[in-house]
Amino acid sequence: MFSHQGSPFCKLAREALVELELPHLLHSCARGNPKRQEIFKKHGIFQAPYIEDPNTGVKMFESAEIIEYLRATYSLYPQYQNL
């Protein structure tokens, strides 16, 4: 996941990864960090959070969508994802 520390949206997505105990790589991309260019080159924009799931090939922005995707895909009890 590409994230930066100051964003509350990134924090929510990171917390979902931790809550589900999913192993992940966190790419910190604060202002001025060259990792921002990786996303920009691929998509023409920079936005964080951004995930690429190597298990499914899914690539997405938007914290709410990321959280929903992670819970639906990896939760043992996806029917309780909104509790």
Rank of each mutant, 00 (worst) to 15 (best):
L83H: 14
I39H: 01
H43Y: 14
Y69M: 05
H27R: 07
S28D: 13
T56R: 07
N33I: 07
E52V: 10
P23Q: 10
P8R: 10
Y77W: 08
L22N: 00
K41W: 11
L12K: 15
G44T: 12
A48P: 02
Q81A: 09
K11S: 10
I39S: 01
P8T: 10
R71N: 09
L70T: 01
T56I: 09
E62T: 01
E19R: 12
A48I: 05
E21D: 12
P78D: 07
I39F: 03
L20N: 00
M1T: 04
Q37K: 13
Y74K: 02
Q37Y: 04
L26D: 13
G57Q: 04
H43L: 14
E21A: 13
L22R: 01
E52Q: 11
S7E: 08
C10T: 05
N82A: 10
E65C: 12
M60G: 02
L76I: 06
H4F: 14
Q5E: 12
M60C: 04
I45A: 09
I66E: 02
E62V: 00
A13L: 11
A72R: 05
G57L: 02
F9H: 10
G57S: 06
G44C: 11
Y74P: 00
E68I: 06
L70K: 03
I66F: 04
I39W: 00
M1P: 01
T73I: 05
S3F: 05
N82K: 13
L17H: 00
V58K: 09
E52P: 01
Q37M: 09
V58C: 04
T73N: 08
P23C: 07
A30F: 09
L22T: 02
L22C: 04
Q79R: 05
H4M: 12
H24N: 13
A13P: 03
S75C: 03
F40D: 07
G32C: 06
L25M: 10
R71K: 15
S28C: 10
A64V: 08
E62P: 03
Y80T: 04
Y69F: 07
M60K: 02
I67D: 01
F46Q: 05
Q81G: 02
D53N: 09
L70Y: 00
K59S: 12
E38H: 08
L17D: 01
M60R: 01
V58Q: 02
H27D: 03
P8E: 09
Y74M: 06
A72V: 04
Q79I: 04
P23R: 06
N33S: 15
E65M: 11
P34H: 07
E62R: 03
A48N: 01
E65P: 01
E15M: 15
L76Q: 15
P8G: 11
I45M: 13
P49Q: 06
P34W: 06
Q81L: 07
P49V: 00
V18M: 10
V58T: 11
K59R: 13
V58D: 00
E65G: 11
K41T: 15
Q81K: 12
L17G: 04
R14M: 13
H43D: 11
P78I: 00
P54K: 11
P8C: 09
A48G: 00
M1G: 03
G6E: 08
K35L: 14
Q5A: 12
E68Y: 12
P49K: 02
N82Q: 11
K42V: 08
Y80S: 09
C10L: 05
D53Q: 08
A30T: 07
